[in-house]
Amino acid sequence: MNIFTLNIALAVAWAALTGNITLSGLAVGFALGSAALFVTKPLFPGCDRYFKRVWRWFKLCVLFLYELVVSSIQVVWDVLTPTHKARPGIISMQLEAKGEMEILLVTNLISLTPGTLSLDVTEDCNTLYIHAMFADNPEEIRQQIRDGMERWVMEAME
């Protein structure tokens, strides 16, 4: 049994024992199960990899939410103020992500962020075309995506 399945089983057991079979009950059970598995790490080979992966996914979610808030504020500010700083443009970017799931996640996270939209990926999956609302400096946008979302996704998918 892998560690994630064991953690899910512990969450379900906790929810059943407390009689609180709701999303919040399962979340509490999952957190308690994670804590129990963390304490008993030496008993389970491969447990370190599980916790590293969980940490990377948690980091990806938190950093994406941060990017979401920052870009939302930037877009709202530009829409509500009389002087518009938006200079839209289409940018091509070479992808370092190679797997289909990595590329899918990167393109979806870009599209979910206000002010940017993934338009297309070439057939060889090496180039991504992005529409950016603030495309004054295309190289800076490429670098932000490469050092931000793309790197975070590649770390999480390892």
Rank of each mutant, 00 (worst) to 15 (best):
A36D: 03
T40V: 09
K41E: 12
K41C: 05
L43W: 10
F44K: 01
P45N: 04
P45E: 03
P45I: 03
D48R: 12
D48C: 08
R49G: 02
Y50R: 00
F51N: 00
R53I: 02
K59M: 11
L60D: 01
L60G: 01
L60F: 08
V62A: 14
F64I: 06
F64Y: 12
L68W: 07
L68M: 14
L68G: 02
L68P: 03
V69D: 01
V70G: 03
S71E: 05
S72Y: 04
I73L: 15
I73F: 13
Q74L: 14
V75P: 03
V75L: 02
V76T: 14
W77T: 13
W77P: 02
D78I: 04
V79Q: 09
L80W: 14
L80S: 12
P82V: 05
T83W: 13
H84G: 13
K85P: 00
A86L: 11
G89A: 08
I90V: 15
M93K: 03
M93V: 06
L95Q: 08
E96D: 15
K98N: 13
K98M: 09
G99E: 14
G99I: 00
M101G: 10
M101Y: 10
E102N: 07
E102L: 06
L104E: 02
L104P: 00
L104Q: 06
L105K: 00
L105S: 02
V106E: 01
L109T: 05
L112Y: 08
L112N: 09
L112E: 11
P114K: 01
P114R: 06
G115H: 05
T116E: 07
L117R: 10
S118M: 03
L119A: 03
D120N: 14
V121G: 10
V121A: 07
